[in-house]
């Protein structure tokens, strides 16, 4: 005699043989409630399956963090990190957002990237009582309020992971993405024959490549 629970389970899993079905019908002749029990079990399985698939859907985007560049030396690492934002990196090199003043000097790192502050003076400008994390949180909240920050990607994108001596520990380099928007005049930086930097209006935004 096959166990009642196993019979029901086999039907749910599509594993029931002809013998199993005969046994199920024989049971049902004595106790018709088994059909209702089967229906409930089928419903539970369907709901649990939906729940598991919903909650594990993130696995579809998960990739093994193969670090092919780990042994390739520093220059390769720099290339790997630089490649994360293809079009962004290109834009930083070739474009100015029109913030900061135009001078004979090449654009600074700060105004090239459109940063609201000059990072070289950051030490004087940050609020000393906040941790870096709190300051970032404040930036995001205020940025959302002011319309500058659109969203912050909750995922940190690991670029390199170097195993440390302590078992299971890694030193990781990661990218944190904050999506922002701004209205800007877009210029292309060019250099005259005399060596003077000038900016020329950009008519059309270069087609962005996928950043990640």
């Amino acid at each position: 005699m096959i166990d009642r629970d196993i019979l029901i389970s086999r039907v749910i899993d599509g594993e029931a043989t002809a013998e199993d079905w005969s046994a199920l019908h024989a049971l049902a002749r004595e106790d018709a409630d088994i059909w209702s029990e089967l229906a409930s079990a089928q419903q539970d399985h369907a709901e649990l399956t939906s729940a598991v698939r919903l909650l594990t859907a993130c696995a579809d985007d998960s990739e093994a963090p193969i670090l092919e560049h780990a042994q390739a030396g520093f220059s390769a690492r720099v290339r790997a990190v630089a490649s994360w934002g293809g079009w962004v990196a290109a834009a930083v090199l070739a474009l100015s957002f029109g913030l900061g003043s135009l001078s004979d000097a090449p654009p600074t790192d700060a105004n090239k990237a459109g940063f609201p502050i000059d990072l070289s003076k950051a030490k004087e400008q940050v609020l000393p009582q906040l941790s870096a994390e709190e300051a970032l949180g404040t930036y995001v909240i205020n940025g959302v309020r002011e319309g500058r920050v659109v969203a912050m990607d909750p995922d940190l994108h690991v670029m390199t992971a170097v195993p440390l001596e302590a078992a299971g520990q890694f030193e990781v380099v990661y990218v944190r993405r904050i999506l922002e928007k701004a209205r800007v005049d877009l210029y292309r930086i060019s250099q005259t024959e005399g060596g003077q930097f000038i900016r020329l209006p950009v008519e059309e935004m270069p087609k962005p490549k996928r950043a990640f």
């Binding site: 709901e47 649990l48 939906s50 729940a51 598991v52 919903l54 909650l55 970032l136 949180g137 995001v140 909240i141 959302v144 969203a151 912050m152 990607d153 909750p154 999506l179």
Partner: peptide
């Protein structure tokens, strides 16, 4: 400060996730 990049309506997604979590 967790914000989402998805344009999916937050309440619908959160509701389904909450129900799934309760079953789990």
């Amino acid at each position: 400060f967790r914000l989402r990049l998805t344009s999916e309506p937050e309440d619908v997604s959160a509701d389904a996730t909450e129900q799934a979590e309760r079953l789990l």
